[in-house]
Design a protein around this nucleic acid. Structure first.
Lengths: 214, 214
DNA sequence: CATAAATAACTGACCAGTCAGTTATTTATG
DNA sequence: CATAAATAACTGACTGGTCAGTTATTTATG
């Protein structure tokens, strides 16, 4: 009666951590930190709960790994996309639309953003990592670019940080919308047309009066 | 050795439910649903845990009450503010800025929004209530007003629902920002200047080319 | 067969929900 | 108007279930 063929498990030390993090990402995204069960994470990673504890000391450590690894791929992309581009700001922003909508639709960043927002009070240090390493950098770069265009008289005066928020908010809200209300049956927002239309609207408003000398 | 003076408790049946809901609102806002402890809620309401269960059957019931009661005051305000205003759309939107920034700074709506987002997967019926009764109504009204202005040739063509999202997103993001990153030490966004500047930017973009005949 | 990887049964802390008993308040009675 | 009886609000110790984390044991592999 012994299961003659298939072995009961494989020994794959090298692959386990990322498999566990991937499974944990899904479960945390679906349930939030507290309601996520380690048995679920282990099962989805194709492993027993005990095996999880060979690679991570606590549930919080797994959560930390999920959130921190969720930043890294974007960190590089954001830096290379936003900094030191010699093209004028309108062209740069128009090029940003497909980039952002791809990020929104094809990467798990939305799920992570939702979890970070949901658990910010319980894990302030993770919210800080996201803020300091990704969000503040991106927002700061945009703010500086806008301030530069204002100084050159190409854009209307006003608080450039607020203008930067005006620029990126709809894409962020569309992510939250997808994670929160689309599962409920709400009509989704198509990220690429939304981003294109919003950026054109924003540019049109910014390049025009009052106060700009084009 | 008997405590001669103060009585151990007061009987205040009529006031208890709203006190419990108020306390629960705070605790859920700080911790999320799962991490909130009923002992904490009870203690903050100045009552024992047993007393909570005289008024609510389960923890979920308390959460439901918090979220549902969080809508009601806004429901009326949104309806009266957005519907059947005879003034032209730009004036209406300019009037909206102080209204929205007041809502953001002076009411607990921000905390509720964060909790609804965080718990949407675990409580889809509450996300649906918020969506159907408040958010879809507000967004739909704005969308219709924009579509009307487009039909009259007063505003640029394009998807009016996306334009409506462009309009309200920065205020929503500023709320999430306050709840998520300001406790971490991030610089806050001042809602009133933000709303004013964003609405002017939006109007300036919407009233201008391409395609509008002013 | 040595040993590292993985399992599965186990432990203990925590917490939602219960309930027997206590205290405040109201009502009935001399 | 006193006070005893009745009632309703409230308390807090307790229970049962869940789940993070541990450990004794089994299994794969060089």
């Amino acid at each position: 009666m012994l299961p003659a063929g298939e072995p009961k498990f494989k020994r794959r030390k090298a692959d386990r951590p990322e498999e566990i993090v991937a499974a944990a990402f899904e479960v945390f995204g679906e349930k939030g930190f507290a309601a996520a069960r380690l048995d679920d994470i282990a099962a989805r990673a194709g492993v027993s709960k005990g095996a999880v504890y060979l690679y991570f000391a606590t549930k919080e450590d797994i959560f930390r790994a999920v959130v921190e690894q969720g930043i890294e791929p974007h960190l590089r992309t954001v830096q290379t996309t936003l900094t030191l581009q010699p093209q004028p700001l309108p062209d740069l922003l128009r090029g940003l639309a497909p980039f952002m909508s791809h990020m929104i639709s094809e990467t798990p960043i939305g799920g992570i953003i939702k979890v970070v927002i949901g658990e910010a009070r319980n894990f302030p240090e993770l919210a800080r990592i996201w803020h300091d390493r990704l969000i503040a950098v991106a927002l700061g770069t945009l703010t500086a670019a806008i301030a530069g265009a204002q100084a050159r008289g190409e854009m209307r005066p006003g608080d450039p940080r607020h203008y930067a928020l005006s620029l990126v908010s709809p894409m962020l809200v569309s992510v939250i919308w997808r994670e929160t209300f689309v599962p409920i049956g709400a009509e989704p927002f198509d990220p690429l047309p939304l981003a294109n239309q919003h950026i054109e609207l924003w540019l049109s408003g910014m390049m025009n009066p009052p106060g700009a000398q084009p």
